[in-house]
Amino acid sequence: MNIFRLTGDLSHLAAIIILLLKIWKTRSCAGISGKSQILFALVFTTRYLDLLTSFISLYNTSMKFIYIGCAYATVYMIYAKFKATYDGNHDTFRVEFLVVPIGGLAFLVNHDFSPLEILWTFSIYLESVAILPQLFMISKTGEAETITTHYLFFLGLYRALYLMNWIWRFYFEGFFDMIAIVAGVVQTILYCDFFYLYVTKVLKGKKLSLPA
């Protein structure tokens, strides 16, 4: 464990909690892409099956349960509890165009052709593009609530911190996982446009609105 990975995990946890609280407190999931949240639930489910097979640490196990629990609670709130506030007309990204090719890629490019490893690889690839429906929805509505931009900021920051974690681990431990690194770079690059808008607008107190 190093400072980049710890702050990365805490940033990820912060993002997940911010979104959960936003929906719970405002009793509304306006502006939130349910499709992205389903993809995240799928990412955690396929990645954390090793909860059943191996124990790494209390921290590792408890964080995995928290992530999975929050992900499903968020999906439940969007599609059941606060369904009336779900903006399905703007959440129209064709996720099947993501899931199917990535499923194929996970079979072709992985570290080990075993079920758990292929599912882990699928999860890594899927996470790198899981935010696309959310970013697509914001581009369609042309704006995002400020609390949603904070959610996206911490979510994007977490993988950027993981990139630093992998540099640290390569230098000090000689450890590197090319699949996670390449997917992590793609994932972080997808947030660059948002990061620019976040820093130049939201941090200056303006509302995040895209040129419609």
């Binding site: 990820h12 090793d50 191996s54 992530y67 570290h111 080990d112 490893e117 882990w120 974690n165 996670a180």
Partner: peptide
């Protein structure tokens, strides 16, 4: 190989 198989990161 071994260290990749057991993924210790979240």
């Amino acid at each position: 190989k071994a260290d990749e198989a057991t993924h210790d990161e979240l």
